[in-house]
């Protein structure tokens, strides 16, 4: 079962974490690099990735951070979450980043480094291309 919250298309490489992301204060607005030492994406940039993570957490102002990284060309190409939250949903909507919610099973199937294609208007919506 998939749900599309923000439509769009993207092709890119999966960057996956099992940890929720608090965009406000833990993702650098200019570079997209995760600055939270306790996060398993610490030191990695989310720029130009297909970011796969459980959900956003924390302040609703985090939506402004998502908008900000997009304005600075440091945003993911698309996001895929297990659970919908309004911070990520409205942040992606404003920044025009495709956002899909997927089932637990499908979430588990994504692997770091996989090449995938997201096209919310196509029949498959999300497909592995390599």
């Amino acid at each position: 079962m998939r749900k599309i919250l923000v439509k769009g298309t993207a092709k890119g490489t999966v960057l996956k974490t099992e940890m929720p992301i608090n965009f406000l204060g833990t993702v650098d607005k200019k570079t997209g690099i995760v600055s939270d030492k306790n996060h398993d994406l610490f030191g990695k940039s989310i720029k130009d990735s297909i970011l796969v993570f459980p959900s956003g957490v924390g302040s609703s102002v985090g939506a402004y951070t998502i908008y900000s990284i997009k304005s600075n060309n440091a945003a993911p190409l698309a996001m895929i979450c297990r659970k919908a939250d309004l911070t990520v949903a409205t942040g992606c909507a404003l920044a025009n980043i495709p956002l899909a919610i997927v089932s637990e099973k499908e979430f588990l199937s994504f692997q770091n480094g996989q090449r995938i294609s997201v096209d919310t208007e196509s029949e498959d919506m999300i497909s592995i291309i390599g």
Partner: peptide
Amino acid sequence: ILVATGEA
């Protein structure tokens, strides 16, 4: 934004 909020 409204559609994303509505779907969520």
